[in-house]
């Protein structure tokens, strides 16, 4: 399967900030990719460049095999839903849907109308008079109904309540199952989407920390707790990302190629072992100095933190 997106050594520099620092990766077709990272990590800049809304300083991007800039064949197959999207002041909700139908070849009007009901959006209301949450819902409706082969959701749910967010996840998953496409979901609510995401891209300060299958990642990072000596012994086989000391016991997050034997090994050392959640992994990797280590090597450095 050819990749939908290929990024090679992409760099974006603003006057004194390096937003993207020579990153390379590719996106496989018909997957849900989680684009994770802190504010200012470069996620939005990356998506803007992939959709030709922003310009790279150096490096190459190929979307559907071609550069997206001024490329109608590529752009017509992309939908980019962003929190900061603005609308002309005279448009109503129904106008925005009509606009989406005009621009997106794969637009499903019936689905759009259904979603408008699901999110309880007032069809005749002026877009500028929508609440923040409603505006986010409108973006989500356009993004889903566009059925674009490559769909970006950049923090799509500012101001949305938990119910509406769950509705978004449910409809995204249902429609994705019926109409497979490549989805990039950028979000801070990692725990909420961890079941949805099939591939994880983690960014930090313009670099790519992780580019890995979600399934593979889950077994790679574990948290063990128990006597310090036993934790030391266990952590030897991986890269320790984080440690909390409490008297004679320690709790450490370790990344490595553990395999199915890891629980037994932990038990024989007298340790409790749990798989870290995706959110834990992201937090530990972005705050750890060993986070940049590509694999399980470099087990030396640790990021110790005494319990207060």
């Amino acid at each position: 399967m050819s990749p939908v997106v290929t990024v090679t050594d992409l760099t974006k520099r603003y006057r004194d900030v390096t937003a993207l620092d020579g990153i390379s990766f590719s996106l496989t077709e018909n997957r849900i990719h989680g684009l994770l990272g802190r504010n200012g990590a470069g996620k939005t800049t990356l998506m803007q460049i992939l959709t030709a809304q922003n310009f790279a300083t150096s490096g190459d991007v190929a979307v559907f095999g071609q550069h997206p800039y001024e490329n109608e064949r590529v752009l017509s197959r992309i939908s980019f839903i962003k929190e900061s999207q603005t609308y002309p002041s005279n448009l109503r909700v129904s106008h925005v849907l009509r606009a989406g139908g005009l621009v997106h070849p794969g637009w499903d009007e019936e689905f759009a109308q259904r979603l408008i009901d699901v999110f309880q959006l007032p069809r005749q209301r002026n877009v500028r008079k929508l609440s923040r949450g409603m505006l986010s819902s409108l973006g989500i409706v356009v993004g889903l109904a566009s059925r674009a082969p490559l769909t970006f959701f950049d923090e799509p749910y500012l101001g949305l309540d938990a119910v509406a967010r769950q509705l978004f996840y449910d409809h995204l998953l249902a429609d994705y199952t019926e109409h497979p496409r490549t989805i990039v979901l950028s979000t801070h609510l990692i725990d909420e989407v961890s079941d949805l995401i099939e591939h994880v891209l983690l960014m930090d300060r313009g670099r790519l920390l992780l580019d890995v299958e979600a399934e593979a990642l889950r077994g790679q990072v574990v948290t063990v707790s128990g006597p310090v000596a036993a934790v030391d012994e266990f952590a030897r086989t991986g890269a320790e990302l984080h440690r909390v000391l409490l008297g004679g016991t320690a709790r450490a997050t370790v990344r490595g190629d553990f395999g199915p034997a890891a629980p037994d090994r932990a038990r024989s050392l007298g340790l409790d072992l749990e798989a870290s959640s995706l959110q834990d992994i992201v937090v530990r990797l972005t705050t750890s100095k060993t986070g940049h280590a590509p694999g399980a090597g470099g087990a030396g450095a640790t990021n110790e933190e005494a319990a207060r």
Binding site: E70, I78, S79, Y87, P88, S89, V142
Partner: peptide, 13 residues
Amino acid sequence: QDFPFAIGLGISR
């Protein structure tokens, strides 16, 4: 107003 909207929808400049 229309330019950011149209580009956001995936129109070339």
